[in-house]
Amino acid sequence: MERDAGKPAPRTAGRKGIVIAVACAAFAVGMVGAAYASVPLYQLFCQVTGYGGTTQRAEAGSSRVIDRTVIVRFDGNVDGDLPWTFQPNDRQVTVKLGETRETSFHVKNNSDRAVTGQATFNVTPNAAGVYFNKIACFCFDNQTLQPGEELDMPIVFYVDPDMLEADELKNAPGITLSYTFFRVDDPDESVAAAPQTGTSTDTTNKL
């Protein structure tokens, strides 16, 4: 009887060991998957919520325009490693909420060689990001300028009238859209690391 009672014990311990091993493996796989998914999930979170001043992407203009205006200011910056001049052609514009507006930035390569740059952006106040919609933009596209080349890069946008429903924005405070260009030393590698980035200078429907 004592031997019979003792026989199941090794099998029970074995089953527990297998369960623990499977659980640990699943946890490890989950952690790796989370690590790979964290960047796109964070980008999606920012786009949906406007977190950190992230703007929204729109395929077309707003279907609603109201007789309430907001001042939109533009700011252009260049990292020290990039030999470019970059500035807005309009320092600020006054637009109606829901009105589609186009403006542009002027950029020039001051060096004697071709250089590639890429722009990041943000909107302040941060809470306005979820209401700032870009229909066309050069941001996050690799831009390659030849020696001495200069061009105007347009953006098309509108500010959603729903902004007035947010307590901190109901008085339609001024909005600042700020860009910073950084040098891209290996454009091909940059594209491979960030699938949402293109090498084309086509500015249609870019966020």
Rank of each mutant, 00 (worst) to 15 (best):
103 T>G: 06
111 S>G: 06
182 F>P: 02
73 R>L: 09
49 T>M: 01
40 P>L: 08
69 T>E: 11
161 P>F: 13
88 P>H: 12
103 T>F: 08
194 A>V: 11
62 S>V: 05
3 R>P: 03
155 I>H: 01
96 K>R: 15
4 D>A: 15
122 N>P: 00
89 N>W: 12
129 G>F: 00
141 D>Y: 06
131 Y>M: 00
8 P>Q: 09
146 Q>Y: 06
203 T>V: 15
105 F>Y: 15
134 K>P: 01
37 A>Q: 12
97 L>F: 05
199 T>E: 14
13 A>Q: 12
162 D>Y: 05
121 F>A: 02
42 Y>I: 07
19 V>N: 12
132 F>Q: 01
33 G>W: 09
143 Q>K: 09
20 I>N: 11
59 E>R: 13
176 T>W: 04
112 D>T: 13
134 K>L: 10
160 D>Y: 09
100 T>I: 05
50 G>M: 02
46 C>R: 13
78 V>H: 02
177 L>T: 07
171 N>V: 05
122 N>R: 10
56 Q>F: 02
7 K>W: 12
157 F>K: 02
29 V>E: 08
82 L>Y: 00
67 D>R: 06
131 Y>L: 02
67 D>F: 09
57 R>V: 08
2 E>N: 14
10 P>H: 14
121 F>N: 01
33 G>F: 06
53 G>E: 01
136 A>L: 05
125 P>W: 13
142 N>M: 08
42 Y>Q: 10
177 L>H: 06
8 P>Y: 11
8 P>A: 08
30 G>R: 06
72 V>T: 03
37 A>L: 10
177 L>P: 00
62 S>R: 04
24 C>K: 08
199 T>D: 14
116 T>N: 03
177 L>G: 04
162 D>G: 10
87 Q>I: 08
201 T>Y: 10
200 S>H: 12
11 R>V: 07
52 G>F: 00
134 K>F: 14
63 S>D: 13
89 N>Y: 10
111 S>V: 01
145 L>F: 06
133 N>V: 02
59 E>L: 12
106 H>V: 04
103 T>Y: 12
72 V>C: 04
169 L>R: 03
133 N>C: 07
128 A>S: 10
143 Q>C: 09
202 D>E: 12
192 A>E: 15
17 G>I: 04
76 G>Y: 00
63 S>I: 03
132 F>V: 02
54 T>H: 08
70 V>K: 03
69 T>H: 06
116 T>S: 09
192 A>Y: 13
27 F>T: 15
50 G>Q: 01
129 G>H: 01
97 L>R: 02
205 N>L: 11
25 A>G: 08
99 E>L: 02
131 Y>I: 02
33 G>I: 05
207 L>I: 15
139 C>Q: 10
164 L>A: 13
194 A>E: 14
94 T>I: 09
114 A>Y: 14
35 A>P: 04
140 F>L: 15
107 V>R: 01
107 V>K: 01
137 C>I: 07
60 A>R: 13
74 F>D: 04
170 K>G: 06
145 L>E: 01
160 D>N: 11
172 A>D: 09
198 G>P: 08
106 H>R: 13
24 C>I: 12
70 V>E: 03
167 D>Y: 11
203 T>W: 14
8 P>W: 09
1 M>E: 13
191 V>W: 05
164 L>G: 07
1 M>H: 13
47 Q>C: 07
34 A>P: 07
3 R>Q: 14
32 V>T: 15
47 Q>P: 03
145 L>R: 01
